[in-house]
Simulated scan of single mutants.
Amino acid sequence: MANTKKNKTRIAAVGDIHVRETDSGKWKDFFTQVSEKADVLLLCGDLTDTGRVSEAEVLVEELRACSIPVVGVLGNHDYERENHKSIRKTLVKANVHMLDGDSVVLGEVGFAGVKGFGGGFDKGMLGMFGEQMIKDFVQEAVDESLKLDGALARLDSDYTDIKKIAVLHYSPIRATVEGEPEQIFPFLGSSRLAEPLNRRGVVAAFHGHAHIGTLEGETTKGVKIFNVSKPILIKEGYEPPFYILEV
Protein backbone atom coordinates (compact mmCIF):
# COMPACT_ATOMS: atom_id res chain seq x y z
CA MET A 1 0.00 0.00 0.00
CA ALA A 2 1.32 3.45 -0.87
CA ASN A 3 2.39 5.68 1.98
CA THR A 4 -0.10 8.58 2.06
CA LYS A 5 1.36 10.23 5.15
CA LYS A 6 1.92 13.93 4.51
CA ASN A 7 4.96 15.85 5.63
CA LYS A 8 4.55 18.51 8.28
CA THR A 9 5.62 22.07 7.50
CA ARG A 10 7.18 24.16 10.25
CA ILE A 11 6.10 27.77 9.80
CA ALA A 12 8.02 30.49 11.67
CA ALA A 13 6.37 33.89 11.93
CA VAL A 14 7.25 37.35 13.24
CA GLY A 15 5.94 40.85 12.57
CA ASP A 16 7.02 44.40 13.32
CA ILE A 17 10.75 43.90 13.01
CA HIS A 18 11.13 47.60 12.10
CA VAL A 19 14.54 47.31 10.45
CA ARG A 20 16.57 50.55 10.57
CA GLU A 21 19.44 51.86 8.49
CA THR A 22 21.77 51.21 11.45
CA ASP A 23 20.77 47.52 11.75
CA SER A 24 23.50 46.04 9.55
CA GLY A 25 24.61 42.78 11.17
CA LYS A 26 21.87 42.86 13.80
CA TRP A 27 19.55 40.28 12.21
CA LYS A 28 21.92 37.71 10.72
CA ASP A 29 21.95 35.42 13.76
CA PHE A 30 18.17 35.70 13.97
CA PHE A 31 17.67 34.56 10.37
CA THR A 32 20.27 31.81 10.77
CA GLN A 33 18.43 30.41 13.80
CA VAL A 34 15.04 30.64 12.08
CA SER A 35 16.44 28.65 9.17
CA GLU A 36 17.54 25.88 11.53
CA LYS A 37 14.12 25.62 13.23
CA ALA A 38 11.61 26.13 10.41
CA ASP A 39 10.81 25.36 6.79
CA VAL A 40 9.19 28.72 5.92
CA LEU A 41 9.46 32.20 7.45
CA LEU A 42 6.55 34.66 7.48
CA LEU A 43 7.21 38.40 7.91
CA CYS A 44 3.95 40.03 8.98
CA GLY A 45 4.43 43.67 8.05
CA ASP A 46 6.30 46.71 9.36
CA LEU A 47 9.45 45.31 7.87
CA THR A 48 10.99 48.79 7.85
CA ASP A 49 10.92 51.33 10.67
CA THR A 50 10.13 54.53 8.77
CA GLY A 51 9.32 53.37 5.24
CA ARG A 52 12.72 54.11 3.73
CA VAL A 53 13.97 52.02 0.82
CA SER A 54 17.42 52.08 2.44
CA GLU A 55 15.93 50.20 5.42
CA ALA A 56 14.57 47.54 3.07
CA GLU A 57 18.02 47.27 1.51
CA VAL A 58 19.50 46.57 4.95
CA LEU A 59 16.86 43.87 5.49
CA VAL A 60 17.75 42.28 2.16
CA GLU A 61 21.39 42.04 3.20
CA GLU A 62 20.43 40.49 6.54
CA LEU A 63 18.17 37.97 4.79
CA ARG A 64 21.21 36.50 3.06
CA ALA A 65 21.60 34.49 6.28
CA CYS A 66 18.14 32.97 5.77
CA SER A 67 18.24 29.67 3.87
CA ILE A 68 14.48 28.94 3.86
CA PRO A 69 11.70 30.53 1.76
CA VAL A 70 10.42 33.87 3.06
CA VAL A 71 6.82 35.09 2.64
CA GLY A 72 5.88 38.64 3.62
CA VAL A 73 3.33 41.42 3.57
CA LEU A 74 3.89 45.12 4.10
CA GLY A 75 2.65 47.06 7.11
CA ASN A 76 1.61 50.64 7.79
CA HIS A 77 5.21 51.70 8.60
CA ASP A 78 6.26 50.49 5.17
CA TYR A 79 3.73 52.93 3.67
CA GLU A 80 4.88 55.92 5.76
CA ARG A 81 6.87 57.67 3.02
CA GLU A 82 4.86 56.40 0.04
CA ASN A 83 7.82 54.18 -0.87
CA HIS A 84 5.86 50.95 -0.46
CA LYS A 85 6.13 49.99 -4.15
CA SER A 86 9.90 50.40 -4.11
CA ILE A 87 10.19 48.53 -0.80
CA ARG A 88 8.14 45.67 -2.20
CA LYS A 89 10.24 45.60 -5.39
CA THR A 90 13.47 45.57 -3.36
CA LEU A 91 12.30 42.54 -1.39
CA VAL A 92 10.90 40.71 -4.41
CA LYS A 93 14.28 41.06 -6.15
CA ALA A 94 15.76 39.30 -3.11
CA ASN A 95 13.37 36.35 -3.70
CA VAL A 96 10.99 37.23 -0.89
CA HIS A 97 7.43 36.21 -1.76
CA MET A 98 5.69 39.54 -1.11
CA LEU A 99 1.91 39.08 -1.05
CA ASP A 100 -0.73 41.73 -1.71
CA GLY A 101 -3.82 39.86 -2.78
CA ASP A 102 -1.49 37.13 -4.07
CA SER A 103 -0.71 33.58 -3.03
CA VAL A 104 2.22 31.20 -3.15
CA VAL A 105 2.39 27.45 -2.59
CA LEU A 106 5.39 26.03 -0.76
CA GLY A 107 5.33 22.28 -0.35
CA GLU A 108 1.84 21.30 0.79
CA VAL A 109 0.90 24.72 2.18
CA GLY A 110 -0.66 27.64 0.34
CA PHE A 111 -0.02 31.14 1.68
CA ALA A 112 -2.34 34.05 0.87
CA GLY A 113 -1.59 37.56 2.09
CA VAL A 114 -2.68 41.18 2.31
CA LYS A 115 -1.73 44.10 4.50
CA GLY A 116 -5.29 44.47 5.76
CA PHE A 117 -6.69 47.63 7.31
CA GLY A 118 -8.63 49.02 10.25
CA GLY A 119 -12.30 49.55 10.87
CA GLY A 120 -12.97 47.84 14.19
CA PHE A 121 -14.42 44.56 15.34
CA ASP A 122 -17.79 42.89 15.74
CA LYS A 123 -20.52 45.28 16.92
CA GLY A 124 -17.96 48.09 17.03
CA MET A 125 -17.12 47.74 13.33
CA LEU A 126 -17.38 51.00 11.44
CA GLY A 127 -20.17 51.11 8.83
CA MET A 128 -20.09 52.72 5.41
CA PHE A 129 -22.24 55.74 6.28
CA GLY A 130 -21.77 59.47 6.54
CA GLU A 131 -18.95 61.58 5.19
CA GLN A 132 -17.01 60.43 2.15
CA MET A 133 -13.83 60.19 4.24
CA ILE A 134 -15.53 57.61 6.50
CA LYS A 135 -16.81 55.71 3.48
CA ASP A 136 -13.30 55.70 1.98
CA PHE A 137 -11.86 54.37 5.23
CA VAL A 138 -14.38 51.53 5.36
CA GLN A 139 -13.95 50.81 1.65
CA GLU A 140 -10.23 50.24 2.17
CA ALA A 141 -11.00 47.48 4.69
CA VAL A 142 -13.59 46.00 2.32
CA ASP A 143 -11.10 46.03 -0.54
CA GLU A 144 -8.42 44.31 1.54
CA SER A 145 -10.90 41.63 2.60
CA LEU A 146 -11.90 41.03 -1.03
CA LYS A 147 -8.25 40.79 -2.07
CA LEU A 148 -7.64 38.18 0.63
CA ASP A 149 -10.74 36.23 -0.39
CA GLY A 150 -9.64 36.28 -4.02
CA ALA A 151 -6.18 34.96 -3.16
CA LEU A 152 -7.65 32.14 -1.06
CA ALA A 153 -10.21 31.33 -3.76
CA ARG A 154 -7.44 30.94 -6.33
CA LEU A 155 -5.70 28.45 -4.06
CA ASP A 156 -8.94 26.48 -3.82
CA SER A 157 -9.42 26.46 -7.59
CA ASP A 158 -5.83 25.56 -8.46
CA TYR A 159 -5.11 22.96 -5.78
CA THR A 160 -6.98 20.19 -4.00
CA ASP A 161 -6.48 19.22 -0.37
CA ILE A 162 -4.08 22.06 0.35
CA LYS A 163 -3.56 23.61 3.78
CA LYS A 164 -4.16 27.36 3.64
CA ILE A 165 -2.38 29.96 5.78
CA ALA A 166 -3.13 33.70 5.74
CA VAL A 167 -0.45 36.36 6.25
CA LEU A 168 -1.64 39.79 7.43
CA HIS A 169 -0.44 42.90 9.18
CA TYR A 170 -3.72 44.14 10.66
CA SER A 171 -5.72 41.86 12.92
CA PRO A 172 -8.89 40.05 11.77
CA ILE A 173 -10.24 39.62 15.32
CA ARG A 174 -10.54 41.58 18.54
CA ALA A 175 -9.01 38.90 20.79
CA THR A 176 -5.43 39.34 19.58
CA VAL A 177 -5.42 43.13 20.09
CA GLU A 178 -6.69 42.85 23.67
CA GLY A 179 -4.23 44.70 25.90
CA GLU A 180 -4.06 47.74 23.65
CA PRO A 181 -6.17 50.81 24.60
CA GLU A 182 -9.72 50.07 23.48
CA GLN A 183 -9.97 53.54 21.93
CA ILE A 184 -7.54 52.53 19.17
CA PHE A 185 -9.08 49.15 18.32
CA PRO A 186 -10.62 50.58 15.10
CA PHE A 187 -7.10 51.31 13.86
CA LEU A 188 -5.69 47.87 14.71
CA GLY A 189 -7.78 45.69 12.41
CA SER A 190 -11.17 44.75 11.11
CA SER A 191 -13.59 41.84 11.45
CA ARG A 192 -14.05 42.07 7.70
CA LEU A 193 -10.70 40.29 7.36
CA ALA A 194 -12.08 37.31 9.29
CA GLU A 195 -14.86 36.66 6.78
CA PRO A 196 -12.66 35.11 4.06
CA LEU A 197 -10.71 33.15 6.68
CA ASN A 198 -13.92 31.50 7.86
CA ARG A 199 -15.35 31.05 4.37
CA ARG A 200 -12.26 29.46 2.85
CA GLY A 201 -11.34 27.00 5.60
CA VAL A 202 -8.01 28.58 6.52
CA VAL A 203 -5.94 26.63 9.04
CA ALA A 204 -4.42 29.69 10.71
CA ALA A 205 -3.62 33.36 10.16
CA PHE A 206 -0.68 35.42 11.39
CA HIS A 207 -0.57 39.19 11.90
CA GLY A 208 1.33 41.89 13.77
CA HIS A 209 0.68 45.62 14.26
CA ALA A 210 -0.66 45.49 17.85
CA HIS A 211 2.52 45.58 19.94
CA ILE A 212 0.70 45.24 23.27
CA GLY A 213 -1.89 42.72 22.13
CA THR A 214 -2.40 39.02 22.82
CA LEU A 215 -0.57 36.14 21.18
CA GLU A 216 -3.45 33.78 20.38
CA GLY A 217 -7.13 33.90 19.51
CA GLU A 218 -9.56 32.40 17.04
CA THR A 219 -12.37 33.40 14.73
CA THR A 220 -16.01 32.51 15.26
CA LYS A 221 -15.43 29.44 13.06
CA GLY A 222 -12.36 28.31 15.01
CA VAL A 223 -9.61 29.56 12.70
CA LYS A 224 -6.49 30.04 14.81
CA ILE A 225 -5.13 33.61 14.82
CA PHE A 226 -1.65 34.50 16.04
CA ASN A 227 -0.41 38.01 16.77
CA VAL A 228 3.31 37.58 16.20
CA SER A 229 4.36 41.18 16.71
CA LYS A 230 7.97 41.06 17.87
CA PRO A 231 7.29 42.93 21.17
CA ILE A 232 4.59 40.39 22.08
CA LEU A 233 6.85 37.43 21.34
CA ILE A 234 9.57 38.95 23.50
CA LYS A 235 7.08 39.54 26.32
CA GLU A 236 5.93 35.91 26.05
CA GLY A 237 9.51 34.67 26.37
CA TYR A 238 10.24 33.66 22.79
CA GLU A 239 13.97 33.97 22.22
CA PRO A 240 14.79 34.50 19.45
CA PRO A 241 11.41 36.18 18.90
CA PHE A 242 9.64 34.01 16.34
CA TYR A 243 6.64 31.73 16.71
CA ILE A 244 6.52 28.28 15.12
CA LEU A 245 3.36 26.47 14.02
CA GLU A 246 3.59 23.00 12.52
CA VAL A 247 0.91 22.16 9.96
Rank of each mutant, 00 (worst) to 15 (best):
N3W: 13
N3L: 15
K6M: 15
R10L: 15
I11H: 07
A13K: 05
A13N: 10
V14G: 14
V14Q: 14
G15L: 08
G15E: 09
D16S: 14
I17G: 11
I17M: 15
H18M: 12
V19D: 09
T22I: 15
T22C: 15
S24W: 15
W27L: 12
F30A: 12
F30M: 11
V34H: 08
S35Q: 13
S35F: 14
S35I: 08
E36S: 15
E36C: 14
K37W: 09
D39H: 13
V40R: 02
L42I: 13
L42K: 07
G45S: 10
L47G: 09
G51L: 13
E57T: 09
L59Q: 02
E61I: 09
A65I: 07
S67Y: 14
I68P: 09
L74P: 07
G75T: 05
H77N: 15
D78F: 10
S86P: 08
R88E: 15
L91A: 05
K93G: 03
K93V: 03
K93L: 12
A94F: 10
N95T: 10
M98P: 04
M98D: 06
L99D: 08
L99N: 07
D100F: 08
D100C: 08
S103G: 12
V105K: 12
G107D: 11
G107S: 11
V109K: 01
V109M: 05
G110E: 06
F111A: 04
A112V: 00
G113C: 09
K115N: 07
G120F: 07
G120M: 04
F121Q: 00
D122N: 12
G124Q: 07
G127N: 13
M128H: 13
Q132C: 00
Q132N: 05
I134V: 13
K135Y: 07
V138W: 02
Q139K: 11
A141K: 00
D143R: 02
L146Q: 06
L148H: 02
L152W: 00
L152Q: 02
A153D: 13
R154W: 10
D156C: 11
D156K: 06
S157D: 12
S157G: 11
D161Q: 12
I162C: 05
K164D: 09
V167T: 07
Y170A: 01
S171R: 01
S171M: 05
S171D: 06
P172N: 05
I173Q: 00
I173H: 00
R174H: 08
A175E: 15
V177S: 01
V177D: 01
E178M: 09
E180F: 06
F187Q: 10
L188M: 08
G189P: 01
S190Y: 00
S191W: 01
S191V: 01
L193G: 00
E195Y: 10
P196F: 02
P196R: 01
P196H: 01
L197Y: 00
V203C: 09
A205W: 04
A205M: 04
H207G: 04
H209N: 09
A210I: 01
H211A: 12
T214V: 07
T214S: 13
E216N: 08
E216P: 00
K221S: 11
G222K: 03
G222V: 05
K224I: 10
F226Q: 01
V228I: 08
S229N: 10
S229V: 08
K230L: 14
L233S: 03
E236T: 03
E236A: 06
G237P: 02
Y238C: 03
P240I: 04
P241D: 09
I244W: 04
I244Y: 03
I244C: 06
E246V: 12
E246H: 08
V247N: 02
V247I: 12
V247S: 02
